[in-house]
Each structure stands twice: as structure tokens, then as C-alpha cells.
Design a protein around this nucleic acid. Sequence first.
DNA 1: GTAGGGTTAG
Length: 782
Amino acid sequence: MLRRSILPFRPWKFKIPAGFPPTPPSTRSSAAASAAATAEEEVDLSVPSSRSPDREETTKVRVRNPRRFLRDPWVSRLVFCHNLAGRGMIEDLRELLKQMIVDEGSNSSPTLCGILSDNFKGWDCNGLIWDNLANVYAETEMVHDALFVLGKMIDLNIQASILTFDSLMYSLRCTGLLCAPVEVACSENTYNTLIDSLCKQFRLNEAIRLFQEKRGCEFRPCIVTFNNFICCSCNMGYVGLANSFFSMMIKHGFIPNKYSYNTILHGLCGAGLMEEALRYSEDMERYGVEPDVVTYNVLVYGYHLLGMKSEAQKLIQRMVVKGLEPDIVTYTILISGHCRGGDVEEGLVMRQELLSRGFQLNIITYSVLLDCLFKMGRVDGVDWLVEEIRAVGLDLDHIAYSILINGYCRAGDIDRAIQLCRIMYIKKIPPNSYVHGAVLSYLCKREMLSDARWILDKLIESGQLLDVVLYNIVIDGYAKAGDMDDAVGLYEQIFNSGLTPTIVTFNSLIHGFCKSGMLNKARVLLHSLSLHGLSPNAVTYTTLMDAYRGEGNINVIVELLHEMVAKGVAPNVVTYSVIMKGFCEQGQMWVSRKILKDMYDKCISPDQIAYNTLIQGFCEAGNVEMGFFLHDEMLQKGLEPSPVTYNLLFNVLCLHGDLKNADRLLDMLVEKGVKLRKFAYSTVIQAHCIKGNACKAVLYFDKMVKAGFEISIKDYSAVINRLCKRNLLNDAKVFLKMMLRDGIPLDLELYVVMLNASRRQGDHRFEIELQAIIITSGLLCE
DNA sequence: GTAGGGTTAG
């Protein structure tokens, strides 16, 4: 039986969200809807009295429009509810209420409350029904409905039980709808629920204040209170604080349980502090708390974040030895590890293995694979995987949808993305800020800024508290387009919306000012960050450094490097690449070379762009050997040279006329199936044309076509132009034939080039042929 | 208490 509060209803402040309740759908016709105009009549109903619940007695109750009243399914179910309440069958009552609200779904509270207040006023158990209705809505996580019922209870002066408050607060703890407590008598659990609520909303300071104020006199913390503090501290990135709470828990006489250990382990692993995490896991065993699957999963996740695959494998073996079976979370972490390493194939193989062993994957595992397929540019693989998700009977959830929408937007398929948005609405999973962000990014990348702004303004007008990321995306769009007035205007609007800018907001503004040549403004912005409680990061400094590099000011770059290091901001691979480029542009390639070596000492792995920067520096200075040496070094370090690396090498070989090596390299790479850009082929082809070796030019042109590149008139013109310049008209004719055969018509520019060459060589016959071609094409009308 | 999604720099 529910314990009824003896206090008047004045427990907590709740924010009833704007726009709630929504207008009830017209399909929900009920006795309440038409009862207002009808007079009350007395009818006999079999309703047990709460005073003598054992006896079923016929009670006369007054209702409006009795015929309609008894026919209405909602009313008859509520009569039954009263019947159950009167017999003290509270569990059955709650089950029936739950069934009713689950059938009707969210937003059903206005209708239900309407029926209750219009038809059951004065019934013996009515208060109990209201209280349980609020309670069941809260337990079913329909918090807006629960709040609506409570609001009506206040209006009708019906008391709510403490259990209902606790249940509601528990449901509200993640929503931000729960405010500070006012004068109230609390159950044992109330403060713990409120601390949990504040922690879930990342309001750690308030939670700590409440803990300090109320501890001892008004409530006694329990182990869950401390676990909540540990969890919140970890989630907010304060692992040190989490450690303190862990110690405090022990000082209060609590023995940490597996939840305490797993929570702190998760915090430590997430922060990359594996050694400390392992120490905790050893302590755990020492104090008799047996590690479970979650413990191992958390540790495996820690290794996964550090990219330590073999350690993760060892841990899984240990887990199996201890008799624990890896579960779907373990496998998802492993699949995610393969995906993060760029090996989606391995992830898919693992999925296949699991399926063959009869293992059911869930939507999270599939989401990891979908996201990776998009990031690897494997959009083709997405369709069949989505098909598989449907075939195994899984529904896409909001994250899976946002992965798909983001992926399609990035792949440029906006139609597909919008189609999915529509499906989300139909499925009642309204697109959230991740989805809005994907569409805004799509528009901004295509400089469709007025469209992006229109959408953002509509979202702002809708009155929802927007995510600052959405502002950041559009501000960055303006900054990249050099429109700093609008960028700054939108930045100011962030404050009007009650939000605060982030470091990303400022980085975009700094980038914009740099791009617009206002480096001083950018630097002022850097130093104003602290006023907003923000600290510059590697992106901030790197953006500024790159701007000064553009001005050839290596001194300021070095100054900024010192400043960032002094402020504890670690330079990353992008920072070093910019600095290397700066030195290379000053002709100091060997300084850059030293920086690259230093990166290894600092455990920052140079990537392809870092190597390409240095290779470009040496190649432009004419040091071909060093270019190739660095290429070899990349291979030694297990770094696959990128198409840009090869562009640089082919370019330098051709510039130096070393076509022998250029051919050799091209043949070797084609044979090895290395992916090259068209630039690599056309550089070699053109170099052969310049040298007058048309045969080789034809040979590599053919290879370029076979490599699957789309060939345009520009490619033919480049070759024909060069051959004509060397008066190799017959070879130029070969390419012209190939071009016409490929269905590419002659244009006026190329016609003039070839006409002049044929006139120079007195090839009148070809002159006439050319004129015939050009007239047939309709380009020469006169 | 464990696994999945968006914005910024070369």
C-alpha cells in the first residue's frame, strides 16, 4: 500500500515545460469531451467503498451523461481502477494504469486528467488514483505527463505521496526540469535522489553544496550517493575529485562495491590513466570485490582508447580464464578498435564471425560499423548493412539515424539525408541537434550561408534551447567565407540565446580574422579568451601560427610556440607541420627536418601531411635525394605515402628531367596497385611530350585511361599543345584521333593551336581536315 | 557501473 503524505502538497519546484500539454488529439473522444453540456444524473455502480473494501456494495454515484459514461472505455477502466483501489489491490491498480498510459502513449495526461476531474470527483479512492497516475507516468519516464498530473493535483488540492515525489524526481534527474528544493519533509531517499539528479545534469557544485548542507542532520549518505559523486566527477573530467570521493566513501565507513570500482575505473580509463586503473582493479580483487564483465570491458575500453590492441586481447584472455564470457559490449569495443584504426574490413569480419556463432549484434555495434563505413568513404557498404539491421529485426535509433544523416551529408547526398529526416519524424524520433548540425555543415561547406542561417533562425524562433555547436557551425561558415560582420553578429546572438561560446567558436572567429588579414584582431581575441573563462587550445595557436606563416613571420610563430608551451598547451602534429612549413618557406629545411625528428622523441607521430610538408620543402629546393629519403622513411615507419607524396616526387623528377626514374616509379606503383592521382600521370605524360617522346606519352596516357580517370579536353589539350610546340604534328594527330574517338569534341582553342602547327609545317591536307571537323561541330559558322 | 553520432587549425 502506498504511504500517503500527511503534508500539504508543497514539495519541490517543477518547471512544467512550455507547450505542455499539447492539444489532445480529436480521436480521443471521451465522456469528458462532451460531458460539460450535459446535466449530472445518479446511477448505480458496483464500486467498493474504501471504508469496507471487503464488501462489494452498490454505490450510487453522480455522473454526467450516464449512458455515454458507461460506454466510454477510458471511464470504465477508471471505474475498475477505483474498484481495485477500494479493495487495496494497489499493484493491480498500478498495472492497469500503466497499461492505459502505455496504450495511449505520451501526452495522454490531459485527457485522463479531464475524465478523472469531470467524472470521479468525490469518489472515495480518487486521490489514490491521481497519486498513482502521477507515479506511474513518472516511472514510465513520461515526465511531462507526470508533471501535468501533479499540476492538476495542486489545482484540485489533492495530496501526493512522497513515493510519487521520489519517483518523479528520479525520472526528472536527467532532464533539468527539477529545481532547488523548498521547505519539505523528505523520505530517506529524497536527498539521494536529488543529488543523483544534480549529478546527472552535471550540476556537481550544487550537488556537493546540498551534500555538505544536509549531511548528518537531514539525511545520511549511502553508497549510491558516493557512487553518483564519483560518476559525475569522472564524467566532468575531474578524475582527481573522483579519487577524493572514493576515499571519502571509505572514511564514511562504506566498503566500495563493484559499481564504485567500475565507475572510477571507467573515469581513469577514459582519461588514459591505465596504470592507475589497473592499480584500482588489483585493489578491487584484494578487497574481495570480484571483477565482473563490466570491469573487464572498462579496462579493454581503456586499452582501446590508447590503441593498445594486444593488451586488450590479453585482458580478454584473462577474463575468459576467470570464467567470464565476453559480451556484446566487449565485442563492440573490439570492433570499434578496428574501425578507429581505419580497418573497417576487420570490423566487418568480426561481425560475420559473431553472426556465424549465433551472436546477436545490437544497434550500437551496427552504428559503430555504419559510422566507420562512412568515414572510410565506403558509402556503398552502408546500404546492405542497413538492410541487414532491418533483416535481423532491429530498429534504427536516434544515434543510428544521425550517423546515417551525417554520413550522407558529408558524402554530398542531401536528398537521402532529408529523406531520413522525414522518416525520423514519421517514427516519432524527431531530429536532434546532431542532425541539424549535419545539414548546417552541408550548407556551410557549399557556401549556402543564407540557407544555413535561415534554418538556424527557424530553430531559434522555435524557442528550443539550441546547442552552441549549431552556432559554431554557421559562425565557421561565415568566417571561412570572410564575412566577419555576420560571424561576429551571430557570435553575439549566442549570449542572447542564454548560451556561452566555446573555444571552437573563438577558433573559428580567429581563423576568420586571420583569413581576412586582421591578424592583430585575431591575436587580441586570443588574449580575451580568459575573460570568457576559456583557455586557448592547440587549434587556437596553430591557426594563428599558420596566419603568421602566410606573412613569412617566423619570429611570431616561434613566439607563439613558446607562449603555448608556457601555458601548458601541447603542440600537436598539425602545429608542428605548420612550423615546419614556416621554416621550409624560409629556406631552412634542415631546421624542419630536426623538428620532424623531435616529434618522434615527443611521441607525436608525424602523419602523411607532416612528411609531405618536409618533402615539398626539400623538393622545391631541388633536393630530390632528400625527398626520396623521406619517402623511404615514411615506409620504414609504417606510414603509407599519400597520393600527394607521389605528386611531389613525380613533379620533382620531371622538373629535373629525370624521366627514367619517373617512368620506373610510375610503373612500379601501378604494378603494386598504389592509388595515385591523375596529376601523377599527367605530370609524367607532359614531361614526355616536352622531351618529344610521344610514344611514352601515348603509353602513359593509355595507362591513365585504364586507371579509370575521367579524361577531359584539358588532358588532351595539355598533351597536344606541347607536341605542337615541338612541331610533332603527327603525334598530336594521334591524340586528336583518340580524343574524337572518346567523343570529346574539338574546341576552338585547340583548333587554333593545331591549325597553326599544320600551317607551320605546310600540312594543308590536315588544315582542311581540321576545318571540316570544326565546321561539323558547329563552332565555326561564318 | 561498460560500447555508437555533430562544430575549429596544416
